[in-house]
């Protein structure tokens, strides 16, 4: 794919920063690489990147806090870089609103694939507008409204909703959703899907105990309620 993105990359270790910056540039992207969370937020507000790739361990404000602050203002896609062995980081990062996370060290090719997956515009070849109760999904305009009001979803959240609504009443496993929405090769971390579902439910005003739109199929995955 010839997608070129403006990536904001925050990593405090100079060696790692230089190496990854070089590798991602060779993939064709435009990188702004900085060494601290504060600088990262500054650049996010001034330069308007299309995606942020944040290392979690930063001096000063850590990557998770940066993600949280970005989320408050924007639907910018965020990928977190974490060292294996920090499951807590993963959970906190997903709760902070990260679209995906990646474990260091990672091959630049794989990181590139994950970046492209998160940036990909939703596939709109499945017809234009669908209505489910008071929920209206416009696949052409990539807009979702509920009871007339605009629902502001991040690209990942939108792709998830579209994947589920594409087959209403049909249950999908987390692994299937990871492959389709995040373009991750098997195996992936199902918690990324769980976190995203949670956010979509919240934005749709869904009560997790009695969801009207996305239901959990125990022992399997998720399903969009067709009725």
């Amino acid at each position: 794919m010839s997608l070129v993105a403006h990536i904001l990359f925050v990593e405090d270790d100079p060696l790692a920063r230089a190496a990854v910056e070089m590798a991602l540039s060779r993939q064709g992207h435009r990188i702004t690489a900085v060494g601290s969370g504060e600088e990262g937020l500054e650049h996010f507000r001034s330069r308007r990147p299309e995606i942020a790739v944040l290392d979690v361990m930063l001096p000063g404000i850590d990557g998770i806090e940066v993600c949280r602050r970005i989320r408050k203002e924007d639907t910018l896609p965020v990928i977190l870089l974490t060292a294996r062995g920090d499951d807590l980081d993963v959970v906190l990062g997903l709760e902070a609103g990260a679209d995906d996370y990646v474990v260091k060290p990672i091959e630049p090719r794989v990181l590139d694939a994950r970046i492209r997956a998160v940036l990909r515009r939703a596939d709109n070849s499945y017809g234009s507008v669908s209505t489910y109760g008071d929920l209206v999904v416009d696949r052409d305009a990539l807009k979702v409204t509920r009871a007339g009001r605009d629902v502001r979803l991040t690209p990942t959240e939108l792709r998830l909703l579209l994947a589920l609504t594409r087959r209403p009443g049909h249950a999908l496993t987390r692994q299937q959703l990871l492959a389709e929405v995040w373009e991750q090769t098997y195996p992936g971390d199902g918690r990324v899907v769980d976190a995203c579902v949670q956010r979509v439910r919240a934005k749709l005003g869904d009560d997790p105990a009695d969801p009207g739109y996305i239901e959990t199929v125990r022992g399997f995955g998720y399903r969009f309620r067709s009725s």
Binding site: R174, Q175, T185, Y186, G190, G219, F220
Partner: peptide
């Protein structure tokens, strides 16, 4: 996670 074994093995 809930895994369909056949799918998982094929993917691996």
């Amino acid at each position: 996670d809930d895994v369909i074994l056949a799918e998982a093995l094929r993917a691996t």
